[in-house]
Computed example of a mutant assay.
Amino acid sequence: MGAKTSKKNRQVPGFEDPAILASETPFTVSEVEALHELYRKLSSSIVDDGLIQKEELAFALFRSTNRQNLFADRIFDLFDVKRNGHIDFGEFVRTLSIFHPRTPEAEKVQCAFKLYDLRRTGHIEREELKEMVSALLHESDLSLSNDIIETIVDKTFREADINGDGKIDQQEWKEYAAKNPALLRNMTLPYLMDITLAFPSFVMHTEAEDSKLAG
């Protein structure tokens, strides 16, 4: 990237040196630069302010700006590390790196735990698990009865709540994840191994735009 582009990038809220971000994540400098193009696209999709708002991330991921989408809210909270209501470039790259195939499994386990710990209490309660299971089923267009969802929650707690205190702590979650690797299936995005300006599929773009970017 040229000096002119770099100067422009430094004016973007939350912009950080690609070399620094590359040193802290599995991404290379060129991949971080490609991620910045993706970031710029997302951050200007609804409000062109250089920051990714909740509606912009929800629309990119789910083609919806519905604020009542619990799963979308949890993904946004995961990226919004500073808890200021938006995602800057540094947050975007560091959080996305968790889903990189080369990221240690321990980090993915911890990240998944945060998704289910809705109230940030340091443990997962039964109602939180039920809410997330329901939200995940909804995003998958699956409709199960409340009885079946309760059965799923019961089974999970029987296996994960080792000390029987009615909640799952981080160590219990770690042991449960080790016995149930499918739990982390969605915590790895294979295409992060090969980032181009036209990636990834969940980002809003047309075939014409892809051809222009790849050209």
Rank of each mutant, 00 (worst) to 15 (best):
M1W: 08
M1I: 07
R10M: 12
Q11S: 15
Q11A: 15
F15S: 00
P26Q: 11
F27S: 10
S30T: 15
S30A: 15
E31F: 06
A34M: 15
A58D: 14
A60Y: 11
A60P: 03
L61A: 06
F62S: 01
F62Q: 03
R63D: 10
R67C: 06
R67P: 07
R67F: 12
R67D: 12
R74H: 09
I75A: 08
I75W: 04
D77Q: 13
D80Y: 02
R83H: 13
R83Q: 09
N84F: 09
I87A: 05
F89S: 06
V93G: 07
R94M: 02
P101A: 07
E105N: 07
Q110G: 13
F113G: 02
D117I: 01
L118A: 02
R119N: 09
R119V: 00
R120D: 12
H123A: 09
I124E: 00
R126A: 02
E128K: 00
E128A: 02
V133T: 08
L137F: 05
L137R: 07
S140K: 15
L144K: 11
S145H: 09
N146Y: 09
I148F: 14
I149T: 10
K155W: 02
D161M: 01
I162M: 10
N163E: 13
D165P: 10
G166W: 01
K167M: 07
K174G: 02
A177H: 09
A182W: 06
T188Y: 05
T188I: 11
T188D: 00
L189S: 03
D194W: 08
A198S: 15
F199P: 00
S211M: 11
A214T: 08
